[in-house]
Design a protein around this nucleic acid. Structure first.
Length: 275
DNA sequence: CGGTATACGCGTCATCAAGC
DNA sequence: GCTTGATGACGCGTATACCG
């Protein structure tokens, strides 16, 4: 390929902390740009590789923007960029604005031709602008986000942490005593549900309540799974909110750059007019 | 230093949607 | 129709900040 964009991964290149781990500290405050990684942009021609900063967490759809102290990336026509994250958008806010709309396929190759989108993405029924607007406004599907988040890594994390938690939690589960068949039990009541299915309680001759082991086990299992699911759901939600905050920051920067550009163009125009 | 407000995370329940 | 995962809503406990 002619050029590549490589992310340095979640380890946080250049001493950058994991954004998720620091999420709580920014709660309630103004959204701030979290630089999560340095992206190596290798250009095909004589141009040296340039660095841009990813302001979204690695391994998910990202908005990438050159920082003020970093050389703006100049992409001559005909260059090709390989981006491994689907639905990524790359902006350079200095000099000429170059926007790349990445097709929703991993490892998609796109041509960077200054302003707008590539031919491929423009040929779709929905314009990239519309898609991007939808990304910003549509209600988030955490499930979809999870799919976009580099499935292998997530799956690995799940196996690593959740699996272990499951093992520990399951081993610590306590179940109701086995009810003897001749204990003269009879159904007493239908008690609390556990997000599905009622729990039928029994009472023995002493008036003590029992829940059959089977039902208790099912309920405990259900609660355990739901507990894990809720935890995961919150994690994804938090990640998504952070992603939105990052996007806001990027778009604000972009807006500011465009305003500045407009201002300078106006000045240039006035100068030429007076000459 | 104690009381209060606020933010945050967690567990649980209810509900929905997808898969079987 | 049942099962199961995802997620909103609710209540609770804890940590932190603020104030008198």
């Amino acid at each position: 390929m002619d050029g590549m964009v490589e992310e340095n991964g979640t380890s946080g290149a250049a001493g950058v902390a994991d954004p998720l781990s620091s999420a709580g500290s920014s709660a309630g405050g103004a959204p701030h740009v979290v630089v999560t990684s340095i992206v190596q942009l290798t250009l095909p021609t004589q141009a040296p590789s340039a660095q841009v900063q990813s302001v979204i967490q690695p391994n998910q759809q990202s908005v990438i923007q050159t920082a003020s102290n970093i050389q703006p990336v100049q992409l001559p026509k005909g260059n090709v960029i390989l981006v491994t994250k689907p639905s990524s958008v790359i902006h350079t806010t200095q000099g000429t604005l170059q926007t790349l709309q990445i097709k929703p396929e991993p490892n998609t190759i796109l041509s960077a031709q200054g302003q707008s989108c590539s031919d491929d993405s423009c040929s779709d029924d929905e314009s990239p602008k519309r898609k991007y607007r939808e990304m910003l406004t549509r209600r988030p599907s955490y499930r979809k986000i999870l799919n976009d988040l580099g499935g292998a890594e997530i799956a690995e994390n799940r196996m690593g942490t959740k699996g272990l938690e499951n093992e520990v939690s399951l081993s610590s589960l306590s179940f109701a005593p086995v009810i003897p068949a001749d204990s003269g039990l009879h159904t007493l009541a239908v008690s609390g549900t556990a997000g599905g299915g009622a729990i039928v309680q029994y009472a023995n001759q002493d008036g003590q309540f029992y829940v059959p082991e089977d039902q208790t086990r099912k309920r405990e299992l259900r609660l355990l799974k739901n507990r894990e699911a809720a935890r995961e759901c919150r994690r994804k939600k938090k990640e998504y909110i952070k992603c939105l905050e990052n996007r806001v920051a990027v778009l604000e920067n972009q807006n500011k750059a465009l305003i500045d550009e407009l201002k300078s163009l106006k000045e240039l125009y006035c100068q030429q007019k007076t000459e």
